[in-house]
């Protein structure tokens, strides 16, 4: 687009100001990236990037640091949280927009937005003091009882259900991201043109078929957008998970195993890092999270953009 040249001082000042404001974003992004590289350099040159990623040892005493376990922990909790949160959020959004009586709409929407406003440390504390005991006493033994003996999936329900584990952390995380997905899903569902729904009804569809085949496909890309935001949230979420995941440096083999994520390791160990290499390795972990978030989010955005262009014109 061609810029319109203006001679008015106020206009020029204003456009200069907005330009500076926009530059702040780029400069801080670049600044953070550069300082992460700088700080993690010692660890990076010692272990090498790929070696760091694939090493499953995290041993400050022997000064061996590898990211494999926190990486896997991050992916598992994020994916599980999304798997739990997506169907629930869609249910909430569809209920609010299409099914619930109009008197309930506003209170429900507000409740969900309040859920998003709760600081994550409160989720963490609630998870530790209220939810984890419930999990270990009722839910996890129940799951173990039902699924524990089934071939193939049985093993992932083994172990002592202590409540501080992958499953609890993923559920707490999912509760945190439900508001993001459901409120964005609600907004995009509301954008479905009334006449599109009516034309579906007009060929003899039921309410459920209209939701499933017209409303959800139509708002699909908006919903993906909400999922992306939630994904970003879940990848980087620290406090809610730190309390209920355990920070154990071992791969989880069951839902009831404690493990660690990148953020949990960072939160727990920054104060303990007593050597330069230890500190630098923690920085390398953050760099890794930075890069992963960046790649995942840009890739997801790209897909959404391409898809919505193709199908929604």
């Amino acid at each position: 687009m061609k810029q319109v040249k203006t001679t008015n001082f106020g206009d020029r000042f204003f456009s200069f100001f907005t330009f500076c404001a926009a530059m702040v974003v780029l400069v801080s992004l670049a600044g953070i990236f550069i300082s992460l590289i700088f700080e993690s350099w010692e660890s990076l040159s010692r272990f090498g990037f790929f070696n760091f990623i694939f090493t499953d040892d995290w041993n400050p005493v022997k000064e061996v640091f590898g990211a494999a376990i926190p990486l896997v922990g991050t992916f598992i909790t994020t994916i599980l949280a999304l798997l739990i949160a997506i169907p629930i959020s869609l249910g909430i959004a569809v209920f609010i927009t299409e099914i619930c009586p109009s008197k309930l709409k506003a209170p429900l929407s507000i409740a969900i937005e309040l859920l998003a406003a709760i600081p994550s440390i409160i989720y963490g504390m609630w998870g530790l003091f209220t939810f984890a005991p419930i999990m270990s006493e009722y839910i996890e033994p129940g799951l173990q009882f039902v699924f524990g003996d089934i071939p193939f999936i049985g093993p992932i329900f083994q172990g002592t259900p202590l409540g501080i584990d992958v499953l609890t952390a993923s559920i707490v995380l999912s509760i945190m991201i439900i508001p993001f997905i459901s409120s964005i899903a609600r907004d995009t569902i509301l954008l479905t043109p009334q006449v599109l729904k009516e034309s579906a009804y007009s060929i003899g569809t039921t309410e459920w078929e209209v939701i499933k085949d017209v409303i959800l496909p139509y708002s699909k890309f908006g919903i993906y957008g909400g999922i992306i935001i939630a994904l970003g949230r879940a990848l980087g979420e620290t406090m809610a998970v730190a309390f209920v995941l355990g920070n154990r440096h071992a791969f989880p083999t069951s839902f009831f195993d404690a493990t660690s994520t990148i953020t949990v390791t960072l939160a727990n160990e920054f104060t303990e890092a007593d050597s330069n290499l230890y500190m630098s390795s923690l920085y390398l972990l953050s760099l890794l999270l930075f890069v992963i978030s960046f790649i995942v989010l840009s890739f997801a955005k790209f897909i959404v953009h391409k898809g919505s262009k193709k199908w929604n014109g």
Binding site: E198, S199, I203, G204
Partner: peptide
């Protein structure tokens, strides 16, 4: 629902479903 499959309606603005051309028709 049955009534509406016997009495079709076409609106002022075209309302294709967010599907392929053939799916728009095979859907019903």
């Amino acid at each position: 629902t049955l009534l509406r499959s016997k009495i079709g309606m076409v609106f002022q603005k075209p309302t294709p479903f967010p599907m392929s051309i053939s799916d728009n028709i095979s859907y019903g």
